Amino acid sequence: MALTKEQTQHFYHKLLHMQKELSGEKKKTQSMTEEVGELSNGVDNHMADHGTLVTDRMTDQTVKEIDRELLEEVNHALQKIKDGTYGICEKTGQAIPYERLEAVPYARMTVEAQADVEDDLETDAPSFEREFHQQVKDLSNKETIDQKSSQTYEILDREQDSN
């Protein structure tokens, strides 16, 4: 069922809000040399302090990259609203259910079409990429996040045992 004008306006405003949040002023991060300089001036700095600094920096970069990609998706969805194609699956041409758009307003496909695309990517990907995607799924899956039964934990245990 196609979206009503009111529903489309609702998603338009929701996407604009997301766009504003994603493109808003981000906190300015110190350069790596400034941060390392601050650590090296201390007397009892531990190597772990430097490791934490690097990990924090990598985390910040990852979050920025995710925000950038999400902003691209939001902008794409806003363009689809302008073109009159918003809410239509890019793979099947079917209407994307309202509930899915409410959860993911920048969705390009129905859940079924998205799952098919992800399955195709998984089977076409090299084995290390498939393993990585499975690990990400394990770490974000609410059922396995606190369990040691996931593939990710098995790999970590094997690596730890080999050391």
Rank of each mutant, 00 (worst) to 15 (best):
S127V: 13
H13A: 11
P105N: 05
E21Y: 04
D124N: 14
D124M: 09
Q114R: 14
E35A: 11
H133D: 05
T92R: 04
M109V: 00
V54A: 10
P126L: 00
E159Q: 07
I96A: 01
L156W: 06
A113V: 02
D60T: 08
T8R: 05
K91T: 02
Q134H: 04
E122S: 03
T85D: 05
S150Q: 13
C89G: 11
S150W: 06
R57I: 01
D83Q: 11
T123Y: 07
T29H: 13
L70M: 07
L22C: 11
R68M: 01
M1P: 02
L121I: 02
E129V: 15
F128N: 10
T123G: 00
D56V: 11
D56G: 06
A115W: 03
S149H: 05
Q134Y: 01
V43L: 10
H76M: 14
R57L: 02
E21C: 03
D120V: 08
E21W: 07
R108M: 01
A77K: 13
E73M: 07
E38K: 13
L53D: 01
Q135R: 10
T8E: 12
D60E: 14
T29V: 07
D157W: 04
G87E: 10
D119R: 13
D56A: 06
E34L: 15
G24Q: 02
H133K: 14
S40Y: 15
P105C: 02
E131I: 14
A125G: 09
V54P: 00
K26F: 05
N75W: 04
N75P: 00
Y86Q: 01
E73A: 04
I155P: 10
V54G: 02
Y98Q: 03
F11C: 09
F132M: 13
D116Y: 14
E34W: 12
L71C: 01
F128K: 02
L139W: 12
D138Q: 08
V136L: 08
